[in-house]
Design a protein around this nucleic acid. Structure first.
Lengths: 339, 339
DNA sequence: CTGAAAGCGCTTACAG
DNA sequence: CTGAAAGCGCTTACAG
């Protein structure tokens, strides 16, 4: 089967390539009759424009790139969902890359996307990305870019985030309000902004309510996953026996912790109240169901793409674009792991 | 900043575009001196080839398409993970589309990928995809394609699957071996091959072990998710009070069912033993932890891409390619939801 | 070893 | 209303 080209159609109809091209794109200076003829022939031959040629001419690919730390993670896959659904509606395809929380990979992937000439880039940073020269390059090349969730304050671009500090404050305050006096925190790694912010929210809530902040009650979970939660909970149990509240940086960590407490006869929430973070749907399925902070992944994906779209449009029209920062609402979800 | 092109480099160096192009691609008929010169200049100017032009010339995009029913699903996101990791290693980028289990969307997405001229397509079918003309078109256009997990027997292409029937047989047999006499099954929709196969495995296991198959014990879960599990379990409870075993088509359904039984004072596994399917990591975190069948998502993704790569290579060399079917191993994982 | 030229398939400014 | 021509940036068969 030979590829059908404009030339093919033109020859069949005995007219010029120019006219065929214009007819298919509904240029006003082509007669109705010709348009009809051309379109019919195109349909008959199952003509599909060669995007490679179109890309080369129009200098855009109608493709955008997305880099996330990890696909296999409910929050990020919700974001992906929000992004690809809205991108598709607008005729954009999404190339997804996974940095595996590795700064080096992230750097390579940015390079890849640049050399693939995607029309725009969406990114949530790896935890150890402190150097941001690769992102600065994207800015320097004037490629539209939006950061979401795990952002860097050092880069001037649009950002879609939640107020992590406030959300963590609300979570901790809920523990305090329900009577907890000695509250531990399972935090994330030291570098990521959201790990820092959630920690600060925790600390601030304690201080605002007359509870002394005790650094020995803060445990680091590098990968903020289920296993991390299990390990931290075991350590916590061995080092402290007077804890009555625990705020975990993610639901996954909280679920790991709960399973340890369940196994060791520590009653949740009677002995210890537990708060998660993100409202992964499974939090309502475990026993006891987990109190948490609802973090809107799908919405974040949608807002991220829509913002990128605006910037891409502005670029095409050579209009200036001022980066925006959008803060999405989170909410406290009270279930059975807190009193 | 102006785009750096071969022409630019050629002008700077006072040589021809042809030579620059060849030098950069290490053609043997260019002098070492010239090569060094060209490469240096290219580096200095941060030259990046225009992929749009390269695509047009070479007629390949080094991009492949992936269509899955749902991203937000542990099994599929593991597959995605396996695919994008291996694709990237081989210099391929992956465009991910989500059919949302809709046949219509799936059709459109196939069209999209065809018109984007991806080098190959990987797909796991939507549950209601029975008409397969869109897939036939892919074959007719001679575009390399690999199906995985949710496949159609009617299309002649490579397939990466597990033996669903056997795995379901093993799961059901485990229930029988542990003493269950009256075993219900929460199956998936009627059309998908894997839903059919798991059901058949369940039925066969019963028959092989002298247990009469009773259609009233089979419940349909259209979306095979947590909510479906909850609803089916409620129905089951109200319609039958003598069930001592339950085989669920997915872990998610099983987890939904367990939460209903937990809430209603039905002891798992003492009153009823439960088997899931897929070994989602959370199955080990719930109470009681879930016995299940391990389904290798990451491996499946890896095998899917590797097979596609072979087919793409064969096509480029104009060699014949005979579709292969690879069946990956599953294994029984016994935890606390069965005796 | 180097380079002029054709061509991939499209778009669009321009002429008629 | 139609079409010849230039050009997007690259690759490669061919000539010298």
């Amino acid at each position: 089967m030979k590829e059908v080209t404009l030339k093919q159609i033109a020859e069949n109809l005995g007219i010029s390539i120019t006219t065929v091209s214009k007819a298919l794109k509904n240029y006003p200076d082509v007669s109705k009759k010709t348009k009809a003829l051309v379109k019919e022939e195109a349909k008959k031959l199952h003509y599909k424009p060669n995007v490679f040629a179109v890309n080369l001419r129009t200098k855009q690919s109608k493709t955008v790139g997305l880099i996330i730390p990890e696909v296999v993670h409910h929050f990020f896959s919700s974001v992906v969902n929000g992004i690809i659904e809205h991108a598709e509606k607008k005729g954009y395809l999404v190339i997804i890359l996974q940095s595996n929380e590795s700064y080096k990979l992230e750097q390579k992937q940015i390079d890849l996307l640049i050399s693939k000439r995607v029309d725009g880039i969406m990114i949530s940073l790896a935890s150890n990305s402190t150097d941001i020269s690769h992102l600065q390059e994207v800015r320097d090349l004037n490629i539209p870019m939006v950061m979401f969730d795990k952002i860097s304050k050092l880069i001037d671009c649009s950002k879609i985030i939640i107020n992590d500090r406030k959300a963590a404050y609300v979570a901790t305050k809920h523990l305090i309000d329900s009577g907890c006096k000695r509250i531990a925190h399972f935090r994330g790694a030291l570098l990521p902004q959201n790990s820092i912010d959630r920690f600060l929210g925790y600390k601030k809530a304690l201080e605002d309510h007359g509870i002394q902040y005790d650094p020995s009650l803060v445990y680091i979970c590098e990968r903020v996953d289920y296993k991390d939660g299990i390990e931290a909970a075991k350590k916590l149990m061995s080092e402290h026996d007077d804890i009555d509240g625990l705020f975990c940086i993610t639901d996954l960590v909280a679920i790991g912790a709960i399973s340890v407490f369940n196994d060791n006869g520590i009653k949740v929430p009677d002995d210890i109240s537990i708060m998660g973070f993100s409202n992964w749907f499974i939090s309502s399925a475990i026993t006891p169901s987990l109190s948490t902070i609802d973090q809107p992944g799908y919405k974040m994906g949608k807002a991220t793409f829509k913002t990128l779209l605006k910037e891409m449009k502005a670029k095409r029209k050579e209009l200036p674009f001022k980066p925006i920062t959008k803060v999405l609402e989170t909410k406290l979800v009270v279930r059975n792991s807190t009193k």
